[in-house]
């Protein structure tokens, strides 16, 4: 495992911890999109089916369990926790799941490595992850005044994707025959979705100001 991959995974882990910190200690999920969190839960549930069939490493297994557990517990907190759920911006978080899930599933039926249940679901999870952030970005755009932890959360998620791209470039040059179009293209699309957010994030850092997206 190279340094970019490790840094990417740790950044992903940090993003989840920041979100759990906000939810668990501040008891607030204001500005967090339940739709995005539910999509991530679907992403991990469909991608990590190989937990039962293939063993890669202890690191791999532990991280998968952490991402599965955290994504489902975040959804639980926002939907069921008696205090947290009150802070959920339900009226603002209006993105429809099936607008995202359905096209991804159809795409996975068309473009996959092998036509088996596991491979189609794996491709589906990659396509879905690529666009799962959209409800969150729409919500940020609508709430405009973004609190620090929410801003950090989205920033860390974007950084994780950027580091994965560096990881693929590194692997391409260091490993023989490392070519993986489905992963690369969906990963690139996913990272590009953060470009606009990154722009305003760095602008706000430069001005020492609060992160505010334009109307």
């Amino acid at each position: 495992m190279n340094i970019f991959r490790l840094a990417g995974d740790l950044t992903h882990l940090a993003s989840v911890l920041v979100l759990l910190l906000k939810i668990h200690t501040i008891k607030s999920c204001a500005g967090i999109s339940l739709k995005t969190q539910e999509l991530y839960a679907i992403v991990f549930a469909t991608r990590y089916l190989d937990l039962f069939t293939t063993y890669i490493s202890l690191y791999n297994t532990l991280m998968k369990l952490i991402f599965l557990g955290s994504s489902f517990s975040i959804v639980w907190y926002i939907r069921k926790h008696k205090i947290v759920r009150r802070s959920y911006d339900k009226d603002q978080d209006t993105f429809r799941h099936y607008f995202i899930v359905l096209p991804c599933f159809v795409l996975a039926l068309i473009i996959h490595e092998k036509f088996t249940v596991r491979e189609v679901l794996w491709a589906f999870s990659l396509y879905l992850e690529a666009v799962a952030i959209l409800p969150q970005l729409v919500l940020l755009q609508r709430t405009r005044n973004i609190d620090n932890l929410t801003g950090q959360y989205v920033f860390l998620l974007g950084a994780y994707r950027a580091l994965y791209i560096l990881n693929w470039i590194y692997r391409y040059f260091t490993e023989p025959h490392f070519v993986h179009w489905i992963t690369w293209i969906s990963g690139l699309v996913q990272t590009l979705l953060y470009a606009d957010f990154f722009y305003y994030y760095f602008q706000s850092m430069k001005n020492n100001g609060k992160l505010q997206l334009p109307a």
Partner: peptide
């Protein structure tokens, strides 16, 4: 194995 290379990622 190039087919499964990305499967060791999260």
């Amino acid at each position: 194995n190039p087919k499964t290379a990305a499967k060791d990622e999260l």
